[in-house]
Design a protein around this nucleic acid. Structure first.
Length: 824
DNA sequence: ATAGGGTTAG
């Protein structure tokens, strides 16, 4: 250490020069101040170069305040810095992001050069003040300053950051003319601009013209290939780069790993991983994320977890990444667990973390955690983020609190088309097709761009309320968009047409499909099944087996229900066995339910009961309800009562079961039992869901309930019913008064039968539609047995096709016959 | 002597 026993000014200057050279600028300043006090001589002031050195030192040591203090002192002393020192000072302000200071210094500088301009442009670029940056370049150009490579690299970066990478093309000619294209820095910036525009070949041309390629330019070209899906080229170039002797860095590794992911080359990725470890980049965040991306997308969760464990986790990004991946892969418990771990590690979640963990909450319907996160979101003001608020709406919708979703939807400051979709999907899943369609039409009115999600959900809504006319309108909208070719939309369309009674149109859409996935096949099979067209359903299933699409659980639900709805016993049994033997699909409760229904409706109640006993797990209400339905058809009171007891033990409030049981007793004329069931319903507070039938006419839906007087056309409807009563009676139809479960006189029962909701809807349809056209009615419950008989007769009398969709399936009445074959 | 190039999650 040199101590301050300064005898002369000369020794002082020598000492501080040594300090400066060794990087101890603060000591040099200190020494100077002391000696200045001692000798009181201006000769001891720093010169411009020395000031520059000190400022540089301040920047490098991260001591901005000292640098600023020095600048103040220089100004106070009336000192003057030269261009070189001023440029360093300018750079200091830029690095400190003190743009206004940098700007005023720039304007005050007596002399400027290209370096001054480039430095300030760089500062403007970093603080997103792009237009000012461009203006400064224009000034530089106009003043005829030197256009060196630095100018072009900075300018190219500016354009890329502005999102105007394609303008880089305009600079290329000047760059070429001035010979800067051989410069690795300029060329790499050009490669990046071309990469963003997808001009891979030009980028490669630029790369090839670099005389001295460095590691960054190799990496830039590799990244260009990786970003533009030329994964093989990326790996090939990586290989060449190593041959030439360059060591990859973290950027290189990140891009090469992306290429491995693109090629689904897990093995290559693993060897790159080993290379990463050898090069000691395993703690780098970008490399780590690329590895996580590769492993999670390849389904290698063990290696993904290992990489994650090794990564430094002070930053929110790796946490968010893993939580998002878990949530996307429906591993919601893992996502939530990781979120809790992250909180324990005192890392605070950002908008991405919140959106992902909320997605997980929505999937597993964890409203409790969802609400906790909601309050956190409000606390940290993330609720204005559209991704976060969309995810929140989804949580409330999936957890059955759609009113809360609606509240958020109305109040959110930022919404987009995904927000609309979330709400529409929410209502569709809740079964409220009308609300979903109302939202859909508002969305169109507000000109919010619809997506495949919008269209498929709107079609699902139509399917749920059987709104064929609306469905047709939406179809014609879709034809005008690019979503015409979307498979999910087409599948929803197949479903819509079949659920709205247009099974032929469903088939038409199905036949026109360019490619079909499992969902398409399943939709077509269940469509035929609903219409009782079992043979057609099985034909489609046979077709499916000839394709690469593998039948899944749902396919067999469709196939077996088709057999059940069409009463195809042998085929049903064969497919049930084949499912386990040939496809290794374990039968689940839905499959058993179909089989019980199949045995049951054909009168093999013993076989149905035997199958139930063979179920290797606890049979659900669905199975027992199917058995009960069969017992009602075949008047097996004892077994029916047993089935009903099972259902009511699990779901004491189930109204449909009470009604079926009461029907069963009424068929057997056991009025005491009927009364008992009624009484117990009253005691338990069980209310029969009111029967409702509806019919669509000229875009309007008309609803009818039993004995409904409210419709404006009621006089005409009454007249029509009176006429039908006489006509059907003459045609041999005898009212089945057992279908009326009240203990009243038969005259009264007959009168009540003619007021059933499906008949009111039918009469309205006959009045308001052109003769000969088909009539479509939807009912929210099972069609009544007597209405079924009456409508068969009516279809012959009025020579009309009448389609009734009840809760289970379609009944297609034509010339006195129903497609269900009287078994449903 | 002072200015410049390439990546991240929903």
């Amino acid at each position: 250490m040199i101590r301050l026993i300064c005898q002369t000014k000369l020794t002082c200057i020598i000492a501080r020069t040594s300090f400066l050279q060794c990087g101890f600028s603060s000591k040099a300043v200190c020494l100077t101040q002391q000696s200045r006090n001692h000798f009181d001589s201006p000769a001891l002031d720093f010169d411009s170069y020395e000031y520059a050195k000190i400022l540089q030192d301040c920047i490098e040591n991260g001591e901005p305040r000292r640098g600023m203090g020095l600048h103040c002192e220089i100004l106070k002393r009336g000192g003057c810095l030269d261009l070189f020192a001023n440029n360093i000072l300018l750079n200091m302000y830029v690095k400190l992001e003190l743009l206004s200071d940098a700007h005023s210094l720039f304007e005050d500088m007596p002399e400027l050069n290209t370096i001054s301009f480039v430095t300030l442009i760089q500062g403007l670029l970093e603080s997103q003040r792009f237009v000012e940056g461009i203006n400064l370049f224009v000034r530089l150009h106009r003043e005829g300053r030197e256009l060196n490579g630095f100018v072009f690299t900075t300018l190219l970066k500016l354009l890329v950051r502005m999102g105007c990478a394609q303008l880089g093309w305009n600079l290329h000619a000047s760059i070429y003319k001035l010979g800067h294209d051989a410069n690795a820095f300029v060329a790499t910036a050009l490669i990046d601009a071309y990469s963003i525009c997808g001009h891979i070949d030009i980028a490669r041309h630029v790369f090839d013209s670099i005389i001295f390629k460095d590691m960054v330019s190799w990496t830039g070209m590799i990244t260009c290939y990786a970003e533009n899906d030329c994964f093989e080229d990326a790996l090939e170039l990586f290989y060449q780069m190593r041959m030439v002797g360059f060591k990859p860095n973290n950027f290189t590794f990140a891009s090469v790993l992306k290429a491995c992911l693109g090629l689904e080359a897990l093995n290559t990725g693993q060897s790159i991983h080993a290379f990463v470890i050898k090069s000691q980049y395993e703690e780098d965040q970008f490399v780590g994320l690329a590895l996580l991306d590769l492993y999670t997308k390849s389904g290698d969760i063990v290696d993904a977890c290992r990489v994650f464990e090794e990564m430094p986790k002070t930053d929110v990004v790796p946490w968010s990444f893993m939580i998002a991946r878990y949530a996307q892969k429906d591993q919601c418990d893992e996502a939530i667990g990781l979120f809790l771990q992250m909180r324990q590690a005192l890392v605070s979640p950002n908008q991405f973390t919140c959106a992902s963990v909320l997605q997980a909450c929505a999937t597993i319907e964890n409203l409790f955690l969802g609400k906790q996160i909601h309050s956190h979101i409000i606390k940290v003001c993330l609720d204005s983020n559209v991704f976060v608020s969309n995810a929140l709406m989804d949580v409330y919708a999936k957890c059955g609190e759609i009113d809360n979703s609606m509240k958020l939807f109305v109040e959110s400051p930022n919404i987009n088309n995904v927000t609309w979709n979330t709400m529409i999907v929410g209502y569709v899943q809740l079964g409220d097709g009308e609300k979903a369609l109302t939202l859909f039409s508002s969305m169109l009115r507000f000109q919010v761009p619809a997506t495949e999600v919008t269209y498929s959900s709107a079609l699902r809504a139509c399917a749920s309320i059987s709104a064929l006319e609306l469905g047709l309108q939406i179809h014609s909208l879709i034809v005008k968009t690019i979503y015409d070719k979307d498979i999910a939309v087409a599948n929803a369309m197949i479903d819509m047409y079949s659920k709205c009674g247009g099974i032929r149109d469903a088939r038409l859409v199905f036949d026109k499909l360019f490619e079909r996935d499992e969902v398409s096949w399943n939709a077509m099979i269940s469509g035929y099944s609903m219409h009782g067209l079992g043979v057609e359903a099985l034909k489609v299933f046979e077709m499916m087996q000839k394709t690469r699409c593998k039948p899944n659980k749902l396919t067999f639900v469709g196939v077996l229900s088709a057999c059940s709805n069409a009463g195809l016993l042998e085929q049903g049994q064969a497919y049930f066995n084949s499912m386990t033997q040939d496809y290794s699909i374990e039968p689940c409760i839905e499959h058993y339910t179909c089989m019980v229904g199949l045995f049951g409706r054909l009168g093999h109640l013993d076989k149905a009961m035997k199958l139930i006993e063979e179920i290797p797990f606890e049979p659900s209400v669905m199975v027992w309800r199917a058995l009960l339905g069969a017992c009602v058809i075949h008047n097996d009171v004892e077994l029916g009562r047993k089935a009903a007891e099972q259902v009511l033990e699990m779901e004491p409030q189930d109204d449909a079961t009470h009604v079926l049981l009461s029907n069963l007793y009424a068929n057997a004329k056991r009025w005491n039992n009927v009364a008992f069931v009624r009484k117990s319903m009253k005691k338990k507070g069980v209310k029969k869901e009111p029967g409702l039938s509806w019919i669509e006419n000229q875009g309007m839906v008309h609803y009818f309930s039993v004995g409904d007087n409210s419709h404006s056309d009621m006089k005409l409807i009454r007249g029509m019913l009176e006429w039908l009563n006489i006509k059907t009676w003459k045609a041999g139809y005898v009212p089945n008064c057992d279908a009326v479960l009240l203990q009243v006189e038969d005259d009264e029962k007959e009168r009540l039968l003619w007021l059933h909701s499906e008949r009111l809807a039918l009469a309205f349809g006959l009045i308001r539609t052109t003769s000969g056209s088909p009539i479509r009615i939807i009912k929210n419950l099972r069609i009544c047995i007597d209405c079924h008989a009456a409508i068969k007769s009516i279809s012959k009398i009025v020579k009309r096709d009448i389609v009734v969709r009840d809760i289970n399936r379609f009944h297609n009445f034509h010339d006195g016959i129903c497609s269900c074959g009287d078994c449903w």
